[in-house]
């Protein structure tokens, strides 16, 4: 396991591709301790990673390893016990519009139409009603929901709701997109479709993405890099670059390279998964 120092990586990143000398996401020695009554549970123990602007980072780990906690801390909804979390050089102290969250369920406001849901963050940001709705329609087109703006969330399927949820988060024009197993609740076919869609949307928007999943296929298919997390207490045990050509289509999943990545990750994850299987029984 390599623990790269943020400073080193900054140099590397700056030297390689971007003229920006700042990292998109930088997490240093992050720990999180929960208190349950008198007991203390260490959810995250010394997590270090960075992401370059525009990079798609997937975080892969067994259930209960603290992946979601990591994302919630990045989003500013939970606080770190120790360590630092920076996004574009700014320390994270609370939620912010530059970090857009997408949850496992779409969490749309059920009392508004899809269009109003997508337009709402823009309204909050001070945009006029007409302009925000026009922009919402553009975003709905981007996620393939043209013509569904007047529907209520309850009238749409799970996959369509999640598309709308992504559109709403994109309306924040976030620098970093934080996605917490967004396709975990969808059926297998819809999930594959949504993965391809997300690839397309991400390439169009150019934001940094931190994407949490427990699905190896999903992690490899989507990610520029896959961070593998251990079971509780969560820490990053591997950082693997996925050198598959972009744009990636469905056929990538059948390639020998893809299978190699999958096998490698499964070997890494196997022991962690077995451990967490028995750990989660308490």
């Amino acid at each position: 396991m390599e623990r790269a120092h943020a400073d080193d990586l900054t140099e590397v990143a700056a030297g390689l591709t971007h003229s920006l000398d700042e990292l998109s996401v930088s997490v240093t020695d992050l720990t999180k301790v929960f208190r349950r009554g008198n007991r203390e549970v260490t959810a995250l123990d010394g997590v270090n990673f960075t992401a370059r602007p525009g990079e798609f980072v997937t975080v892969l780990g067994p259930s209960g390893c603290g992946k979601s906690t990591l994302l919630h801390i990045l989003g500013g909804f939970e606080s770190a016990s120790t360590g630092s979390v920076e996004v574009f050089g700014k320390s994270v102290t609370g939620p912010g519009r530059e970090r857009g969250m997408v949850f496992q369920s779409a969490t749309l406001f059920p009392w508004w139409t899809i269009q109003r849901n997508v337009a709402w963050p823009l309204e909050v940001g001070g945009m006029g009603r007409k302009a925000s709705r026009a922009r919402a329609d553009d975003l709905l087109e981007l996620v393939g929901l043209t013509g569904f703006g007047d529907a209520y969330p309850g009238e749409l399927s799970g996959g369509m709701q999640q598309r709308a949820g992504i559109a709403r988060t994109l309306s924040l024009e976030p620098q970093v997109l934080l996605m917490d197993e967004p396709f975990g609740a969808l059926d297998a076919q819809t999930r594959e479709l949504m993965q391809e869609e997300l690839n397309r949307i991400w390439q169009a928007s150019g934001t940094t993405v931190v994407f949490i999943t427990h699905d190896i296929y999903e992690a490899v298919f989507l990610g520029d890099r896959v961070l593998v997390m251990s079971g509780r207490p969560g820490r990053i045990v591997a950082d693997i670059s996925i050198d598959l050509p972009r744009p990636r289509g469905h056929d990538v999943k059948g390639s020998p390279e893809f299978s190699d990545y999958h096998a490698r990750l499964w070997n890494l994850l196997r022991d962690e998964a077995i451990a967490s299987e028995f750990l989660s029984r308490d």
Partner: peptide
Amino acid sequence: IEPRLLWVARNADA
């Protein structure tokens, strides 16, 4: 109330 709905609102800086 579903707490995630409040998170969404806080995310938008409402």
